[in-house]
Amino acid sequence: MPKKGFVNDVNITLDGDCTMERVTDLHALLAERCAPLTGTPPSAAVVHVDLARVTGIDACGCQLLALFLEQLRRQGIAASAENAEPEIRERVELLGFCALFSGGQPQP
């Protein structure tokens, strides 16, 4: 199960696997953070999701993170996921989520 340590309101550190097998837990954890951040007005201007301690990721996990980040961006928050280990970064690149994680691509 992914563990999460909140360094502060704008830094979210994920720990463990972000995969289909864990996606329900990951969703619950991120939803918990999403609500206060997306209040009116938003409680932060920038949010970083730290992937340094993520040990595995798949398309399902990537999608959830991308959706979380996009939700924040729609509230005017500059949100991104970063610091992934090379192996995780390669996987994210392979799956095509780089732009979504960095906030470089507008969504419909």
């Binding site: 991308a66 959706l67 939700q71 729609r74 989520f97 969504q107 419909p108």
Partner: peptide
Amino acid sequence: CEARLAEVPDFA
């Protein structure tokens, strides 16, 4: 390869 979200539903 580029992934796109077809929609952005309410996260919760």
